[in-house]
Amino acid sequence: MSKPKIAFYWCAACGGCEEAVVDLAEDILGVLDAVDIVFWPVAMDFKKSDITALPDGALFATLLNGAIRSSEQEEMAQLLRRKSQHLIAYGACACHGGVPGLANQFSREQLLRFVYEEAPTLGEDGRSRPQLESEANGHELELPRLHQAVRALDQVVPVDYYVPGCPPTPKLTQEALAMLLSSNPPPRGSVLAPDTALCDECPRKSSKPSDLSFAGFRRPHEILLDPEKCLLAQGVVCCGPGTRGGCGALCVGGNMPCSGCFGPTSRVRDQGAKLLSSLCANIAAKDEAGINLALDGIPDPLGTFYRYALPHSILQRNVSQAARAETLSL
């Protein structure tokens, strides 16, 4: 009997999720015992045509990382969806939009204008926009179209399982694969991580006082962080209380606050709103001026509270009048 066929693919991603697979180290051999990798552009030489040639549903599973930003990524997501029995959103970008999703703070026009015309690093003659179609040396060249917004995988195609993390830890990855291959896989739609917030497994949990209130907020580079004490108790925004556990509190272990990569628990629709709600309710100040002074300690609320989940948030993206007007010219 042939082994189940597995594909790995990446879309709008940094490559960290690919590294996470490599980080399985010698354990990857165990994985290879159990499955056949038939598609993994980063590591092995396969072509898109190899996949197109397969019958629909021929792949047991595809682990797709990265957000969907362009027409090409969307096309690949559709293709792999069709060919796979199980499509797994692997990593924060595929699960929630991830760091690339922060681009949703701006409209596509704003992004293109800045990157190709206004960025201070551009030389005078470099200020031109790439075109979707162009000609070079007598060849027609085509570029993928950039979407209006960055999307999480499930905002483009139906997703069967989610493995969160930036990147998912090797342990989580292994367990997810084992669970998939088991005789009793979890119900479709499951997030293959605990549904309890990170504090539950945080080694600093006991050092958090029960009467914490924030006089102000500091960013990690602004203070010398105590390596034992709850980071929130030190006035640093730690997203642990509003983020799924399962990572083993790795960032906290490195003396850095949780920045939220595992996304919210299943009971929360909007990770940023909830983080904001709990943090701000506990500000010490009782007057508007004092409150605002404390809030100044979080200079980029959107980037702080939605670092990995902006496309999956309730508002999803910049909805300004300008951004809305741009849509009409789509």
């Binding site: 990170l198 958090k208 029960s210 009467d211 309710a281």
Partner: peptide, 9 residues
């Protein structure tokens, strides 16, 4: 998760 955010509220 026992994060204690609610206690002082």
């Amino acid at each position: 998760s026992g994060c204690k955010s609610c206690l002082p509220l």
